[in-house]
């Protein structure tokens, strides 16, 4: 989309570093600081219109652009894949508007923007994970009115969420929530975990990296600071279940210990969702 901007802006003005004007970036950083200070709390911000559409990572993109510095190295993945078309598009926007380095290797990256996955590789305190969030409100399934939702969060009244999980078990025998599993952060706020798979949820708990969530369309950011408790909402006698496929392993690298995706109905088509991780295993 950089040609889009070039065409409209004209060479005499040029595009600012990291696309947004400085005031906008400062405002987003203020919201992020607020979010880090109150883990899991959804902080409103003046979400700008980006060169990518709302719903296509505009929130994650604004977070990345607001925090990126000239010394950063960015990795962008979509579905775990650096080469997903949307990952490519977002990465070239970040890189072309900042001149920062890009990488597909977690250990080389300082900012990792992702949609729907946390990389399989270990991340440390030198990493910031930026997650693109389509729906930041974890309680929308049980309540639609934003005024009531504000009250529920303010009073930590998550009883209806618990009831809905209980009813799910009664009706279906299991909890049917697939991705974006609701989690209690720092013992206080329930958050929507983007939609990352349940597989990735344990990675958020007491992580040594900072996770920033950006919801551009709904104009909210929230954060999980390093070493913060992240507990999936679950009952004492019901185990939290991550995605499993018995006997499945990656047809490329043989991995049975990563999050695998497959073509429905084709048991031989399993492969790692995290393509950089898979490639490195094959090169070893």
């Amino acid at each position: 989309m950089s040609t889009t901007l070039d065409g409209l802006v004209g060479s005499e003005q040029g595009v600012p570093f990291a696309l947004l004007d400085e005031e906008s970036k400062r405002e987003i950083r203020r919201a992020l600081l607020h979010a880090v200070a109150v883990p899991g709390h959804q902080v409103p911000f003046g979400s700008r219109e980006m060169p990518v559409a709302r719903g296509w990572g505009s929130g994650g993109l604004q977070v990345t652009l607001a925090i990126v510095g000239r010394d950063d190295t960015v990795k962008v993945i979509d579905q775990g894949d650096d080469e997903g078309v949307n990952a490519v598009n977002l990465r070239r926007l970040v890189v072309s508007s900042t001149g920062v380095e890009e990488t597909s290797e977690v250990h080389e990256a300082t900012i990792i923007q992702s949609r729907h996955r946390i990389p399989e590789d270990e991340m440390g305190e030198n990493h910031v994970l930026v997650l693109q969030v389509p729906v930041p409100e974890p309680l929308r399934g049980v309540e639609r009115d934003t005024r009531e939702l504000s009250r529920m969060h303010a009073e930590a009244d998550y009883s209806r969420m618990w009831v809905s999980l209980y009813e799910d078990i009664v009706r279906n025998g299991v909890i049917t929530q697939s991705t974006g599993y609701p989690c209690l952060v720092n013992g206080r706020y329930v958050v929507a975990t983007t939609p990352i798979p349940r597989w990735d949820i344990p990675r958020l708990h007491d992580a040594s990296f900072l996770t920033l969530f950006g919801a551009g369309r709904e104009k909210r950011v929230y954060a999980i600071p390093p070493h913060t408790t992240v507990e999936p909402l679950i009952f004492d006698d019901i185990p939290f279940e991550v995605e499993t496929a018995e006997g499945a392993s990656c047809r490329l690298c043989g991995s049975a210990e990563s999050f695998l995706v497959s073509a429905p109905g084709d048991d031989d088509s399993w492969s790692c969702s995290d393509t950089a991780w898979c490639r490195r295993r094959r090169q070893k």
Partner: peptide, 18 residues
């Protein structure tokens, strides 16, 4: 419009989980 059209994005991970 943006959110409607985002349905065209890959959803391999969420669909796998479903």
């Amino acid at each position: 419009a943006g959110f409607l059209e985002h349905l065209k994005l890959p959803h391999y991970v969420t669909f796998r989980s479903m």
